[in-house]
């Protein structure tokens, strides 16, 4: 998934970007409040990891503006401000979660997974649709019970489709999920990955809706 990371500390930002990438996300990293607002206005993110003490514009202010604009994407505050009042203020300003530095990368990723799950309307930790199961915590993918090995980008693409089964995603939307700023995008990269996925899973697993995009069928309500 594509994540916006807002962190002014160079060293910590570098580590968080690397850590989130290791978890399979495409990460855009900006170092101040104004940069965060620009990024949020122009790109489509699955979630935001937001520091509060930012140059140029405070993180809380960015968050309030985001919510005032009726944007619903999950926001996780990651800050050194640790008092109870600060946490209350952050959550009341519209944050979905609040983590205090120094935090554990594993915990940060787990909380992000939980937020993304909820945002996709999928409370179960393991995603399942059309015979495919995908565990975001371990990146394990199986088709009809058989484990399937996927490359990082293939996994990210499948995750995006599995997050909202039954909903078609256009090629542009899928590209948004796969690539961060500065990543090289091949002209038919999405088609190539879809092709790989169909070969590894089943030609029928991912359907093409001509002119609309790609979709994984939702299981009939059990």
């Amino acid at each position: 998934m594509r994540i916006l990371l807002v962190e002014d500390d160079t060293l910590l930002g570098d580590a968080l970007q690397a850590g989130l990438k290791q978890a399979g996300h495409a990460v855009d990293w900006t170092r101040d409040g104004i940069g965060a607002e620009t990024a949020l206005a122009t790109e489509d993110y699955a979630a935001v990891v937001l520091d509060l003490g930012l140059p140029r514009k405070d993180g809380l202010e960015v968050l309030r503006r985001l919510r005032a604009n009726k944007r619903v994407l999950p926001v996780l505050i990651l800050t050194a401000r640790d008092t109870v009042e600060d946490r209350i203020k952050g959550l009341d300003a519209g944050a979905d979660d609040y983590l205090v530095k120094p935090c554990d990368l594993g915990e940060l990723n787990a909380r992000l997974r939980a937020l993304l799950r909820r945002a996709g309307g999928q409370p179960a930790p393991v995603l399942a649709a059309s015979g495919i199961t995908l565990d975001p915590a371990t990146h394990a993918v199986a088709y009809r019970g058989e484990p399937v090995e996927l490359a990082a980008k293939e996994y990210a693409l499948l995750l995006a489709l599995m997050q909202q089964p039954g909903r078609a995603l256009s090629r542009a939307q899928l590209e948004q999920h796969l690539y961060a700023w500065g990543d090289e995008i091949g002209s038919n990269a999405v088609e190539v990955y879809i092709h790989h996925l169909r070969r590894k899973l089943d030609a029928e697993a991912i359907r093409t809706l001509r002119g609309i995009g790609y979709v994984i069928a939702k299981d009939a309500a059990a």
Partner: peptide, 29 residues
């Protein structure tokens, strides 16, 4: 507050290094 941020960075970088898939990523961390 000021001490927490470098500590957070150190811990996160160490975790990145531990989970790094290749040598250059680990070296950078």
């Amino acid at each position: 507050h000021e001490l927490r941020t470098p500590l957070a960075a150190l811990k996160a970088q160490a975790q990145v290094a531990l989970a790094a898939a290749d040598g250059s990523e680990r070296r950078h961390a």
